[in-house]
Write a protein that binds this DNA or RNA. Sequence first.
RNA 1: GGAGGAGUGCCCGAGUGGCUAAAGGGGGCGGACUGUAAAUCCGCUGGCUAUGCCUACGUUGGUUCGAAUCCAACCUCCUCCA
Length: 423
Amino acid sequence: MKHTVTDTTRCFRPKSEALQLLIDRGFLHQCTDLETLDEKLQAGPITAYAGFDATADSLHVGHLLPLMAMRWLQKTGHKPILLVGGGTTRVGDPSFRTESRPLLDTAQIEHNLAGIRATVERLFDLSEGQGRIVNNAEWLDEFRFLEFLRDFGTHFTVNRMMTFDSVRSRLEAQQPLSVLEFCYMMLQAVDFVELNQRFDCTLQIGGSDQWGNIVNGVDLGRRSGAELFGFTLPLLTTASGSKMGKTAEGAVWLNPSRLSSFGFWQFWRNVDDADVPRFLKLFTDLPLGEIDRLASLQGQELNEAKKILATQVTGIVHGLAAAEAALQQGEALFSGQEDLTRPTHELPLELLAKPLGLLDLLVNIGFAASNSEARRLIRGGGVRINGSLTMEEARQISEGDLKPGERLTLAVGKRRKALVEFA
RNA sequence: GGAGGAGUGCCCGAGUGGCUAAAGGGGGCGGACUGUAAAUCCGCUGGCUAUGCCUACGUUGGUUCGAAUCCAACCUCCUCCA
């Protein structure tokens, strides 16, 4: 029942290549049993998993950390399982949320799974025997209620479940916690054990907020004689202290259909100087020696490191070609007067049948959250159409504004630029 | 169980009848400077079919021409006593 919690270890010297890498690159936050895990990793290939909710049709940068950790495991010879919560998403993890999550229906979840799969396939080798993507609906859907209670219910005590922060905080806030949500932690524990039985999976990696859920799985495994391990990742914040991954336009999505490669590349190009070394270690495959060299760059030279960071991460997530294109666009756009060359947004041409309000357009492509915000941006002198500043809030867009190819460039501020193609 | 204090916008926090879409700060966004960085300075920061209208100061109801502000009940949090 006791776990050795190893906080970001200072003196521990891992023998396994995998752990060495993960620690050196800054992935370790806590581990249930670092030494034994190290031995297992050293002894031979193990199978590890990380789970993802299917609440949206794309993952976002917040998910990139576990993805990268899993990726390193694969690169060091281990087998990753990417578990998507087709079953658990129908329940909703109550961890650290004050209110219930909305429940999603099966069709929506299916759609989301497809989007997530697209990203995962790019990041991992999922060929036979190398790694796999698994949907926990496969077994969760099969359970009969009484069987489930009999097989697993005996291993959980309400007494202990009540002690979990995720449960307690909800109760203390006098917010309702449904039985459904209460049982979430059982499901995640069952997932771990199920993956252990099916694929000999012995390690779970997750965010630091998943510690409780992960430990539950480790404990449940022990009862059935399996030795399981948990490993959590640090909570990522930017140098300015805020939670990483939010921009003016919202979450930084991994799926190109949600955020263009150019937008994704720009996100990484614009990180704070102070974040560059850490991000290079966590989010690129560059060797540490190379990273040290890049991190030592000073002043304006550090911009080169940022470009490398952006291109590397975009390359991993969107593919090399997209990354190169984004790099070139960025270079062209910020060095000279050259405009974007590839459309970042596509809108139906019919929109221009009637004059289209600039306000609507800004909201439509996500540069403003509301008409009022769009108005303020214009008033503040931050909006450019085809490169020229406009202060006219009531500005209408018509076909006359389009450049060859039915295109229109729209910029908000210096960094947010869109090439809208009407087709 | 008893006594006291508190719940305000994304966050912190001022405000005790009309001048309050709510001081100040943080964060965010826009502008200047710069290196698409940081720091600094300036501006903006609920929504809408917009010189007006709607929504918003824990919840519900009440007093009043008028309530974040007064009253009642309820909910939550904190402190002290038991």
